[in-house]
Simulated scan of single mutants.
Amino acid sequence: MKPYNIIIKPVTDEAGNYFSARVLEFDGCIAAGETKEEAHDNIYEVLEGFIEDMIEKGEEIPEPIGDEHFSGNLRVRLPKSLHKSLSRAAKLEEVSLNQYIVHKLSK
């Protein structure tokens, strides 16, 4: 399997305490588990199903978001690793990179 970006975070809500996992490259590819390890295992099962369905439908499978996607070039030069980190954080917040940076800088 390709190195997709898996995000796992703890959740506390009306359902209790658990871990939520998602794949950044696939909208709606989400799983949960009582432990981080269980969420990790479950997300790969869901991901396999997503990829199988996309292949059956003839849809293009997204490539993993990797370092090569981050030029580090905004209006200000910054390290690629920081650009990647900011981009992932913005995706998690479901806002544009520009909105995320402006929000963080305005604090």
Rank of each mutant, 00 (worst) to 15 (best):
A32P: 02
E37N: 14
P62D: 06
L86R: 09
D67I: 15
D13E: 06
K104Q: 15
E14W: 06
G58M: 01
A21K: 01
R75V: 09
K57V: 00
F19I: 06
G16Y: 12
K2Y: 01
R75Q: 11
D27V: 13
S71A: 08
L92W: 07
N5W: 02
S96A: 02
M1G: 15
R77A: 09
N17F: 14
P64S: 10
I43F: 12
L86Q: 12
E25Y: 03
V46A: 10
I51R: 00
A39M: 02
F26Q: 00
F19V: 07
I61Y: 01
S106V: 02
I8V: 14
E48V: 02
A31T: 02
G66Q: 11
E93S: 07
I65K: 07
H103A: 13
L47W: 00
G66W: 08
L78E: 12
I8K: 02
K80G: 01
E38G: 10
E56T: 06
A21Y: 04
I8L: 04
N17C: 13
M1I: 11
F19C: 04
I61W: 00
P79Y: 07
S106D: 09
I101F: 11
S106I: 01
Y18C: 06
N42G: 07
E94D: 13
F19H: 10
M1C: 10
K2A: 02
V11R: 05
